[in-house]
């Protein structure tokens, strides 16, 4: 068995064990996320009494909410992961893997994405039940768009994680970013071309089209697909690059495992 596969399985297994062992937390997250949606839905219902229904379709609210949950998850999977391991004193042990720190962080990202799915899929179905509509889902298209979209979020999480290696408490930035993401995800890509290059925006808009217009991945303009791939890779690699720089600074200062 490849060492990479073993490492990935090890990281994923840890996430799953902790999810199962602390099931009250797990269920709590799902309930919390669902309750937030309920309030959003109530707010939406009072809003549509004043505005045209077609301007704000309910599908848009659900999809944007789901993407926002993933965006918050990306911060937890990277920045909070690095901060928590550092606090727990295990970061240096995790660092000392023959496959390298960046590799283990990458597998943590993949494992975190899978874990997020376990949390968010039930919320998605509960949200559909609440609004009384079952969405048509092209799982492949939606899955690819979602995965590419969240990679940019993981990239930003890595930047904050990197900063936390040096300055230690960067959780405040992560907390504030959750709210910034609400704004970014709400943006329409039609208002300005450059908005497509922000994390989450293009992916969220494309995901909406998969529901509204029942578009498969290949039905999207090639430029949009390329921009989505470019944006996710850009933020992800930027994240890894800054994490690497911060790791070097932290090692120079001798504070890699400090908290």
């Amino acid at each position: 068995m490849s060492r990479h596969w073993i490492l990935f399985k090890t990281v994923l297994k840890r996430n799953i064990i902790e999810m199962r062992r602390y099931y009250v937390d797990t269920i709590g997250y799902v309930i919390n996320y669902y309750l937030i949606f309920i309030f959003l839905f109530i707010g939406y219902k009072s809003l549509i009494s004043n505005v045209s229904f077609t301007t704000f379709p309910i599908e848009g609210v659900v999809i944007k909410y789901i993407f926002w949950l993933f965006s918050v998850g990306t911060l937890a999977g990277t920045a909070r992961f690095i901060i928590q391991e550092s606090r727990a004193g295990t970061l240096e042990q995790i660092y000392m893997t023959p496959l390298g720190f960046n590799t283990i962080i990458f597998y943590c990202i993949l494992a975190d994405f899978i874990t997020q799915l376990i949390y968010i899929i039930p919320v998605f179905f509960l949200a559909m039940l609440t609004i009384g509509k079952l969405f048509f889902i092209d799982i492949l298209t939606f899955g690819i768009i979602l995965f590419l979209t969240v990679l940019s979020g993981y990239g930003i999480g890595l930047i904050i994680g990197g900063i936390s290696l040096i300055y230690k408490n960067a959780l405040a930035i992560a907390r504030n970013l959750q709210f910034v993401y609400i704004g970014i995800i709400s943006l329409s890509v039609n208002s300005h071309f450059l908005i497509k290059f922000l994390p989450f925006t293009l992916g969220t808009n494309m995901a909406l089209y998969t529901f509204n217009r029942k578009l498969a991945l290949l039905n999207f303009p090639l430029t949009d697909i390329l921009i989505l791939v470019f944006t996710s890779m850009f933020y992800l690699f930027l994240g890894f690059y800054i994490l690497h720089i911060c790791e070097k600074i932290a090692k120079n200062k001798g504070v890699l495992g400090h908290y």
């Binding site: 090890t10 297994k13 042990q93 023959p98």
Partner: peptide, 16 residues
Amino acid sequence: RLTVKENLEFFAGLQG
């Protein structure tokens, strides 16, 4: 948060 055995398996896994 992991048990004794799970810890051993985890660190062995980190090593491949």
